[in-house]
């Protein structure tokens, strides 16, 4: 579903705030309603002044499962970023999962929840690199259809130079 947008005008917001304040004052002063007395200070409406027009953007919320998947993917990406930096700094055989966890700023145990071993992490880093390469190539060629082979070759060499850790 596409994002829907709704705008709440200041006038509407002020009316809502005014009614909220009236309710609070009535409670504070022991306003009697329907034979019952509301006298409590426990509730005080929070006044938030909008600096300008209050904009509410309603985005398709998805599901909690989607959110968890996105979070997990983001965390994995951060760990792969850290792994690439560590692999760039020392030979593969000298790299340990503890080094990568330390670089990522997470505990040694946490990284094993995402990658069972170093090989899996290594392969995921390579696969991510290949996906990035493919996206880069497609974008480059889409931007220059006159000489797609030259453009792709330039983009390919540029990628290898930038991601020398993966490619060498």
């Amino acid at each position: 579903m596409l994002a829907d947008r709704a705008f709440v005008s200041l006038g509407f917001w002020h009316r809502a705030q005014y009614l909220s304040d009236i309710q609070w004052m009535r409670r504070r002063s022991g306003f009697a309603a329907g034979g019952r007395v509301f006298a409590t200070d426990s509730f005080r409406p929070t006044r938030i002044w909008p600096s300008t027009r209050l904009k509410i953007t309603m985005v398709s919320p998805g599901t909690f499962s989607d959110l968890k998947d996105r979070e997990r993917k983001n965390r994995k990406n951060l760990m792969i970023d850290a792994a690439e930096r560590v692999f760039a700094s020392k030979p593969f055989d000298e790299v340990s999962m503890r080094d990568i966890a330390s670089e990522a700023g997470i505990s040694h145990a946490t990284i094993y929840r995402y990658f069972p071993d170093q090989q899996t992490l290594f392969v995921d880093a390579l696969v991510r690199g290949v996906e990035q390469l493919r996206s880069l190539l497609e974008e480059a060629v889409a931007g220059n259809r006159d000489a797609p082979v030259d453009t792709a070759a330039d983009a390919f060499i540029g990628f290898l130079s930038e991601k020398i850790t993966i490619s060498r």
């Binding site: 392969v123 390579l126 696969v127 290949v130 390469l133 493919r134 497609e138 797609p148």
Partner: peptide, 24 residues
């Protein structure tokens, strides 16, 4: 590499090779 990881890596590699082959 263990066979599963090898296949995963090969599949990713094939995607790029196919892409270049289509281009040529």
């Amino acid at each position: 590499l263990n066979p599963d990881l090898l296949e995963k890596l090969n599949s990713a590699g094939r995607v790029v090779l196919d892409w270049f082959e289509d281009l040529f």
